[in-house]
Amino acid sequence: MKNSSLYKGSLNTIIMKLLEEKGRMYGYEITQKVKAITLGELNITEGALYPALHKLEAEGLLEVEVEKVDNRLRKYYKLTEKGNKETVNRLAELEEFIKNMQNIVNPKLSY
């Protein structure tokens, strides 16, 4: 990833957006999905991913399901009702942010 600090503030929104699309996902699946979508440009480290998932769970935005898969237990995350509503808000905020950044970085495009 070229500049991880630029993505840092959007990590929670990225996770929520993916969960909104896929329904439920487990940690490794999230990292691989992000890597695939961004063609390897964004690499979410496990050290950033799990604390973020646990914080979203503590805020009541995610809930957990545990299942036995391939001889081991797997923890799936999915959005709660509150999480679904919050995803819409956060995506709108992110879009607004991208639009503003676009205006600053490339003012000609905004006309």
Binding site: Y26, G27, Y28, E29, Q32, Y50, R72, L73, R74, K75
Partner: peptide
């Protein structure tokens, strides 16, 4: 809660 998901993550990563 941490152990089981980190174990699954490492196992999935190694399998890949």
């Amino acid at each position: 809660d941490y152990k089981l998901e980190i174990k699954d993550h490492i196992a999935s990563q190694v399998e890949d």
